[in-house]
C-alpha cells in the first residue's frame, strides 16, 4: 500500500522533556487517521512534525526519520515550502488571517500561483463551495473574516487550506472549539473529503475518533501504544491501556492497578 506519511523511530524532545519516543507509524492514503490519546501526550507534536512547524519552537531536538511521499523531510535541502504546501492545516481554534473572507482563501492561491483576477475569483468560489461556506458568504466576500461565526470561521480555514491544493489534510483537534452542530458539519466534510485527500486528525474525543477514523494511532506519553485499523483498535484492542482509554477509565489508575497484569502480559510476549 502506498502510504503518504511514514515515520521511523521518530523522537522529539523540548529541551529536557521528551514529547515523542520512538514513534514508527504509517499513515494510509485517502483514509482518515485519528491520533488519539490524553492531553499533553504528544499528539499535536506529531502533527507538527509532519509539516515541520515544530521547528518554530525553542530547543527542539528531532531524531529519527519522517517520510512524506517517500522523501525524508528532515533531509538537508528539502524545500520546506513545497512540503507545507502539500498539507492543509485545520487548526485547533479557527484563526482567520487579518483580512477579508475572499483574501483569506486567496492568500494561498496568490502565494503559489500567478493568477488573473477572474481566475482567482473563480477558484475562491470553488474552494468556498468545497468547504460548504459559499452560500453563507457569497454576498459579503469582502467583509472581514473575523465577523463570521466560529463555525463558519473553521470552514473558512478549511477552504483556505484546500486552496493550496494539498494532498494531505492535518486537523489539530479541529472541532474542539466548536459547538456540536458546527462540529458535525466539519466531521461530515472530512468524511466527504477523504475520497480525495489523506486526512490526519488529532483528537481527544473518542466518540469522534470512532465516528471518523479508518485507522487509529493511540499515543500515551509520547509512545505509540497501539496503531491499527479503527475496527481492530476499537473492537478488540490489544493493549490494556487502549481498552481502558476507550472505556474512559482513568489511565493512571489503570496503570497502577493493572501494572502487575500488564507486566505479566508483556512477559508472556503479548506486548503492549
Amino acid at each position: 500500500m502506498n502510504n503518504p506519511i511514514r515515520t521511523n523511530l521518530l523522537s522529539v524532545s523540548y529541551g529536557q522533556h521528551q514529547a515523542l519516543n520512538d514513534v514508527s507509524i504509517e499513515i494510509p492514503a485517502r483514509k482518515i487517521t485519528a491520533i488519539i490519546g490524553p492531553s499533553g501526550c504528544g499528539k499535536s507534536t506529531l502533527l507538527k512534525v509532519f509539516n515541520r512547524l515544530l521547528e518554530l519552537n525553542d530547543d527542539i531536538i528531532i531524531s529519527g526519520e519522517v517520510f512524506v511521499d517517500g522523501q525524508d523531510i528532515y533531509d538537508k535541502g528539502v524545500d520546506v515550502y513545497s512540503l507545507r504546501k502539500k498539507m492543509g492545516l485545520l487548526p485547533q481554534k479557527p484563526f482567520p488571517l487579518p483580512m477579508s473572507i475572499f483574501e483569506n482563501v486567496a492568500y494561498g492561491l496568490k502565494i503559489h500561483n500567478h493568477l488573473g483576477k477572474g481566475k482567482l475569483e473563480g477558484l475562491v468560489e470553488h474552494y468556498l463551495k468545497e468547504a460548504s461556506l459559499w452560500d453563507e458568504v457569497k454576498d459579503r466576500l469582502h467583509a472581514h473574516a473575523a465577523k463570521l461565526s466560529i463555525g463558519q470561521q473553521q470552514r473558512l480555514c478549511l477552504a483556505r487550506g484546500l486552496a493550496i491544493e494539498p494532498e494531505i489534510i492535518l486537523g489539530d483537534e479541529p472541532t474542539s472549539a466548536l459547538d456540536p452542530f458546527s462540529a458535525e458539519r466539519i466531521e461530515r466534510k472530512l468524511i466527504e473529503l477523504k475520497k480525495r485527500y489523506t486526512i490526519v486528525v488529532v483528537t481527544h474525543n473518542i466518540q469522534q475518533a470512532i465516528r471518523l477514523a479508518d485507522y487509529v494511532v493511540f499515543l500515551y506519553y509520547g509512545k505509540v501504544v497501539e496503531a491499527d485499523t479503527a475496527d481492530k483498535v476499537f473492537k478488540s484492542p490489544q493493549s490494556l491501556m487502549t481498552q481502558a482509554y476507550i472505556k474512559g477509565e482513568f489511565l493512571d489508575e489503570v496503570w497502577f492497578d493493572k501494572e502487575a497484569r500488564l507486566i505479566n502480559k508483556v512477559a508472556q510476549g503479548e506486548g503492549i
Binding site: 512547524l53 492545516l89 502565494i111
Partner: peptide, 9 residues
Amino acid sequence: KEISLSLGA
C-alpha cells in the same frame, strides 16, 4: 505565524 507558514508561505 503558524497558519501562514502552514500554507506554504
